Simulated assay, not measured.
Amino acid sequence: MDSDLKDSPMFNQSVEKGLAVLAAFGARNRHMSLGQIAETVGITRSSAQRIVFTLEALGYVAKDPYTRRYELANKVMEIGCNYVASNTLIDSANPFLSAMNSNCDETVSLTEPCGLNMVYVASFTSRKPIVAHQAIGSRMPMYCTAAGRAYLAGLPEAEIQSLLRDSDIKPLTSHTNLDREEIFKQVLEGRARGYSINFEEYYIGHLNVGAPVYNKDGRAVAAVHVVAPGSRWTADEVLGKLGPMVRECAGAITNAVRAH
Rank of each mutant, 00 (worst) to 15 (best):
M118Y: 05
I43H: 08
Q49W: 06
E78D: 14
P65M: 06
S86H: 09
A73K: 12
N103D: 14
Y120P: 02
D64Y: 07
R50K: 15
A62K: 10
C104I: 11
L89D: 01
S92V: 02
D64H: 06
A62S: 12
T44M: 11
T54F: 13
Y60L: 15
N117S: 10
L89A: 03
N82S: 13
R127W: 00
V76N: 07
E106Y: 08
S92Y: 02
T44Y: 11
C81N: 14
I90G: 04
M100G: 11
I43L: 08
V119W: 00
S98A: 13
V41G: 02
T125L: 14
A93P: 03
R127T: 06
A122E: 00
M118L: 14
V52D: 03
S47L: 10
A122N: 04
I79N: 04
N117Y: 10
S109F: 00
K128R: 13
N94P: 03
T111A: 00
F124P: 00
T107L: 03
E106M: 09
T54L: 15
V84R: 14
V52R: 00
S92N: 09
V61S: 05
S46R: 13
N87M: 06
L55T: 03
A85N: 06
A48Y: 01
R45N: 09
N82G: 14
T54Q: 14
S47Y: 04
F124M: 01
T67W: 09
S86P: 00
I51S: 01
V121I: 10
C114I: 08
P95C: 11
E106L: 07
T111Y: 00
A73H: 15
N82W: 07
T111K: 00
S126Q: 03
P65G: 08
S92C: 11
A62G: 06
I43F: 07
Y70F: 15
D64E: 07
D91H: 15
E71R: 09
L116R: 07
S102P: 00
I90M: 06
E78L: 14
N103P: 01
F53K: 15
M77I: 00
N103C: 08
P129Q: 10
Y66S: 11
E78W: 08
N74S: 13
N74D: 15
K75W: 12
L116P: 05
M118F: 07
R45V: 07
T44R: 15
N82I: 02
A93N: 01
T67M: 09
Y83E: 05
P65A: 09
M118A: 08
T54E: 15
L55E: 00
E56K: 11
R68I: 04
Q49L: 09
V41S: 05
L110T: 03
S86Q: 11
V41K: 02
T107I: 04
I51T: 07
G80H: 13
R45K: 12
Y70N: 09
Q49V: 05
G59T: 09
A57M: 12
T107C: 03
N117G: 02
N74E: 14
N101W: 08
R127D: 06
V61Y: 04
S46E: 13
A57Y: 07
L89P: 01
C104L: 11
L72R: 02
Y83C: 02
R45M: 06
C81K: 15
L58R: 13
G115Q: 05
Y83A: 06
S47H: 10
V84E: 12
P129C: 08
T111P: 00
V41H: 02
I130K: 05
F53V: 13
